[in-house]
Simulated assay, not measured.
Amino acid sequence: MNIEIERNPSKAEADLLRRGIKAFNEETVRDLEPSEEEKRFHVMARDGEGSLQGGIRATCYWNTLHIELLWISETARGSGIGRKLIQKAEAFARDNGCENALVETTSWQARPFYEKNGYNHMATLPNRPKGHSSHYLKKVLI
């Protein structure tokens, strides 16, 4: 067996890996939500002139909202836009069958913000990135 790192595998091999884990998951958990049901979406906040002031990038799959990133412009921070973005993302997630929400945030980012919005700390991975920590939070949406 030859084991190597490949940074640019062929599309065919990457697809084989994806199909392999998908088949395993479907065999193991018969009523698992199909990956084709994954819904990627953004929630955007724009000012009166249409300039982007903040947003969320997220995905709904396996009955869970996965918040991938949240950004608010410096001028819009503290105005309540973050709370409104979270509420809009959670409402979309509920409408699409999500019962849970997950987010990862780092020690210099938004843990207190998420906790203020009902997220509960599950775990911390220290020294990720080096000298900091990553925090993992969840929220029940139902």
Rank of each mutant, 00 (worst) to 15 (best):
G82Q: 03
L137P: 07
E37P: 04
S10M: 13
G118T: 15
A93N: 15
I81A: 03
W108P: 03
L137N: 10
E26G: 07
L32I: 13
P129E: 13
G78I: 00
G131R: 02
A91R: 09
Y136T: 03
N63I: 01
Q87N: 14
N120H: 15
N100E: 15
A14N: 15
I5W: 09
P9I: 14
A23K: 13
K139A: 00
E49R: 14
E36W: 03
L125D: 09
S73H: 05
D47L: 10
W71L: 06
R7P: 01
E36H: 05
N120G: 08
L16P: 04
L65N: 01
R30G: 11
Q53K: 10
W108V: 01
L141A: 09
I81W: 00
T28F: 08
P126H: 14
P126I: 13
H132Q: 09
E37M: 15
I142R: 15
D15Y: 07
H132K: 11
E68S: 08
R77V: 03
P129N: 11
W71H: 08
H132C: 09
D15E: 15
E104W: 08
T124V: 13
E4I: 12
D95P: 15
W71C: 10
R46M: 02
H42F: 06
D15T: 11
T28A: 07
R19C: 00
Y136F: 13
L85Q: 13
N117G: 11
V43D: 01
L137K: 02
F24I: 05
G97N: 06
E115H: 04
N117S: 10
A23I: 08
R30C: 10
R46P: 00
E38I: 10
R18A: 02
G55M: 04
E37A: 14
S35I: 11
P112V: 02
L102Q: 07
F41R: 03
Y119F: 13
Y136D: 06
K84Q: 08
Y114L: 04
N96L: 11
A76M: 12
T105Y: 01
S107N: 08
Y114P: 06
R18M: 02
E33A: 09
I72E: 08
H132N: 10
K138V: 13
R83M: 00
R128I: 09
H135A: 02
T59S: 08
E37C: 14
